[in-house]
Nucleic acid binder design. Sequence first.
RNA 1: GCCCGGGUGGCGGAAUGGUUUACGCAGAGGACUUAAAAUCCUCGGCCCCUAACAGGGCUUGUGGGUUCGACUCCCACCCCGGGCACCA
Length: 1254
Amino acid sequence: MKKYNFRTIESFWQKEWRTEQIHEPNFSRPQKPFRQALQPRAQGRVARGRPFYNLMMFPYPSAEGLHVGNMYAFTGSDIYGRFKRMQGYDVFEPIGLDGFGIHSENYALKTNQHPMKLAEKSEKNFYRQLRMLGNSFAWNETLETYDPEYYKWTQWILTEMFKRGLMYRKKAAVNWCPSCKTVLADEQVLQKSQVSSPKSQKNSKPQIPNSEQDKENIPYSKFHIPNSKVGACERCETPVVKKELEQWFLKITDYAERLLSDLEKIDWSEKVKIAQRNWIGKSEGAEIDFEIRTKEKPNFVLLHGYTGSPKHNFFPWLKKELEKRGYKVQSPTLPHSDASRANENDDMDAFRKQVELNRNTVLLGHSLGTIVAMKALEKLDYPIRKLALVGGFLEPRFRDHARSFTKTFNWRFNFEKIRTNAGKITILHDPNDRAIPYDQGVKLHDALGGELIEPIPKKSHFCGKEEPEILKYALDRLTVFTTRPDTIFGATYMVLAPEHPLVKNLESGILNLERVKDYIRKTKNKSEEERIADGREKTGVELKGIKAINPANGEEIPVWVADYVLNSVGTGAIMAVPAHDERDFEFAKKYKLPIIEVVEPLFVKTDDIDGVRPGLPLKERSAIVAVVKHWSEDKYLCLKWKKTDWRGFIIGGIEEDEDMAEAAAREIREETGYASARFIRNLGGIVHARFYHAVKNENRWARFHGLYFELADGTREKISDEEKQIHDVVWVDRKEVDHFLDWVTDMRLIWHRVSSPDDFPGRNDIHESSRVNKQGVLACSGEFNGMNSGEAKWKITNFVGGKRGNRYRLRDWLISRQRYWGPPIPLIFCENCANKIKEAPRQARGKFTKGEFENPGWIPVPEKDLPVKLPYVKGFRPRGKGQSPLASVKSFYEVNCPRCGSRARGETDVSDTFLDSSWYYFGYLAKENSKFEILNSKFRGRAKQWLPVDMYIGGAEHSVLHLLYTRFITKVFHDWKLINFNEPFKRFRAHGLLIKDGAKMSKSKGNVVNPDFYIKEFGADALRMYLMFLGPFEQGGDFQDRGILGITRFLERVWNLCQKSEIQNPKSKTNSNDKNQNDKNIERALHKTVKKVTEDIENLHYNTAISALMILLNEMEKNSSRLSLLALRSFLKLLAPFAPHITEELWSRFFDPQKLKTPDSQSESGHNSSKKYRSVHKESWPIYDPALTEEDTFKLVVQVNGRVRDTITARKGISQKEAEALARTSENVMRHLDKKAAKKIILVKDRLINFVLQ
RNA sequence: GCCCGGGUGGCGGAAUGGUUUACGCAGAGGACUUAAAAUCCUCGGCCCCUAACAGGGCUUGUGGGUUCGACUCCCACCCCGGGCACCA
């Protein structure tokens, strides 16, 4: 008998598979994408050739070689692919290398090699190792992200993004490691709870020779703050600092909503979907305006329009409204009520005569008045406070009377002067304006900047008698975003982020400007670390002289600047509701700002008989919650309801002629019997409850007031039986009350007023921070009192003139890297073009792309000039100063502008490596003769047939980054009509983490498993199977050295079994008629296993699939003499995805029906018939007969009172009577039955019988 | 703090509300062998009782609940791993 020699077998087949190309899908054969769903358990054979794209996350090839973690992932993916192939799909399973990026570059730095040379080396090594795994990769379609032919398209994506306005440049704070002198990607910043000691930091710094003096070195002590979280460099643990740099961004935020909602459509691991949802972080809320008043008040100048006067339209009303608020208003009459006299000079004269401007002036022009306003500003030599243009224009192109003005006005404006003198600029334009086309508003906005608002006026062109929108925008206002508009009545102050523009706009009105400026300066200089290191103690400064008006109740509230509000979140300003927001609460406590509670907890029972009955009126009742203290111990009187799981204090309604304390004392007596309760104080808290009162047949809305009592002594009366039935009376220790109280009745609020009374000195200062986001009932909220907070949200938003809106946590994707090893960003900066674009008249704008217009001077490299090749640079080491090493390569950045030909400068930053991997699944299909092409029809054809990816397997660490970016790019491609789908991966599964002896593998721990070693020692098949056997694939596993022996034994037993002579030469051909019991058992075991393995692979439960194969092998070995060839063939097929080499060897040697010329060799029609062998991997997957997976006997479990007393083999399908009789034959069972009659007998069919005695 | 996972023998792990511990590793005993390795067979939770057989009790992080019966469902809590974090 030949010994199992995996070394020769594995290398032979790996070579053979490659030369025969058996894992190449047939791209050229015209196929329709498969339509009908393929049942995995379908009967009969499946025609080959339906495409199945089985993708695994491609590795980044560090030269250290393939990590066993890679192998773990790839094997899991490959098993699935092989399984699908045997099920009849044409499987495409490509592999490539994600070789660009910081990981590879760091390794090059560490080992002092050049990344380009290193890439060559690791590519060879990696592919060699990958070939040894025995995966069914399509080796013709490999790709490497650093291949210029590949990154040509990475760059093309950027140029297209740029042209379409999806890419822009702005200043941003990036992570900077002062030790490595380089920018770090966010994912390279570790959130360390504590940075190790300064000494060890220095010692563990990487040995990058310093080419320059490190002037930016920051003293470590400054950052060594124990017990606080600090972002630290992945490599050297140096705390990361933020540095402001000009960076390129991709507008992923434009796709936030789609990225979120399309998650519903895809079959992905739920945890990955959740991670993405959290990352996108949608919050629904409202934008609400707060009017701002300054001590030094603005004065208003209102300029009416053509054929108007200060008595027309909204002017009288607006004047009155403004004066009502104490503002001075000037409203001059302009002499152009007659068209023939309308004339610029006349108007300006009239204006000068009647109006006085100063720095606090708000200049508001309507229609033609806007021209006068702008002209007036042109001539001013100081700035005013604000310019508001309502229904304005800057070209004489409006619908009527255009000709009247073409000549009497000078239509050239000095926009720059206007801009400098205007202060804040607001342009209001009715999108459906019947007098002035909307584009005039847009043009004004283009020319002047500021904000462009599109309100709906009462009458077109703002000709209504009252135009509240104008009033709103004429006044200073602060827009906040809030998710809790229902709490607005509790807003007691406002907070601006230090960077908020309003601070600057209001400067003149701030009385303590120096202090404010000082504070802003300080926070700006603070690094992120310091802000965190402050222990998060909130700081802030009040803007003295500035007040905001709470639109809900008209009250004046203070305005603060504080750095706990971030400019990048929401609108950069908040309304602070300290009673219902922990951060605001903390701040309010520190600065002694008022805290008003406006949401009170509500308990609504809806799911049982106590629930509110719809249709009946809701009657309001006062009720009490009594907290009663023990007479000598620190214990409190509680009730435990018997019929429900409520646990709480004594509650009860207040009868007529009773006050709260009397009612409470009575309830205490009735419910607990204690008679000596003494009323101490009113706790003030209120809990609401809504329920159905069965006796009175009405819905009740009870408002429970918390009252505090102490017992004088233990005097106790008898409790009625009725009360006893309802609840138990318990004394609960002070410390345990919190735990004891249940969440449904929600009495914690009241309890906290007892346990920590200092937090609640009075009715207006009460607060319970854990309640912040809870539903409740509104109080102190005027007409909204009693309303549910959820319901009140949008009603209040409406009431205060707010606007519903969504915000997302997702930020735009920063793709600039000041590094060497990545694709250069293909853009060129041209001074000449910059000027041309800035000066370009509007009509000429069409010549430029959106990106060029929005980023003046930046020109994309034309497609024909792509790729912008990364030059070989000796000094590739990252430099300081926030520049890529390419910035020192003249020949690289000195270029001519592709637009105008003048001298220009190429961008020297490279792009993020996640961009490389965001489209690689296209890349595999786009490769043709070592080039990639995604714009031709050939690719489109393939894409249509093979995309989107059917199954994608990879690590959960990419849940957010890679997977989100790829989805983004796919959606972008879809919008560009390159593809007809908008989700890249139909199905995604995250595999678990492979650990070693209970700990994460890491070089420092020295417990990294080297797959090369194990493959050499035990073979790829054994290692594959062992890895899959460790635990559930989606959960990961623990690699233990000895465990692999079990698999090795298993494979050897398979080998030996197949070689047994009695199997190779069966003595008597058994036909179906004379099957004995053993044959049946084997057959049944086989069918069971087919079912189990098929289902397990589909669900990625490889560990249990393997265990099922082991069980089958045990069974077959016991019956080896009667084993049929068919059974062994099926077994090998089941094993083939897990152990591809040994099964192929055995198959080709003994079982290939072609060779053996057995009757069942006519499997698939004419496939590969000329080949010298038929691979087991192209055989069809075994099918099973459900009927044959069932046993005809079972072990009847006999229980007495739920305890197992015996198991008896029984025929399937026996009746209760039969089972009972059988059970009674057992001595042990009878002993436990003890002559008693069973009260109840429970039979679980074909499984169990339970005698219940008592 | 919030959001995800997870907690079962000596170990990795298995288990549609129905015998907890499948399969494998490690271990013990036996066969083969001069011997060892390999291989094959047998036995494996803990505690009590027993010379042994038989038998009994306990046991899936903790405490409650639902149920004839809970690893599984419900409530509360503890611990471990991962992610996010002043997101308004």
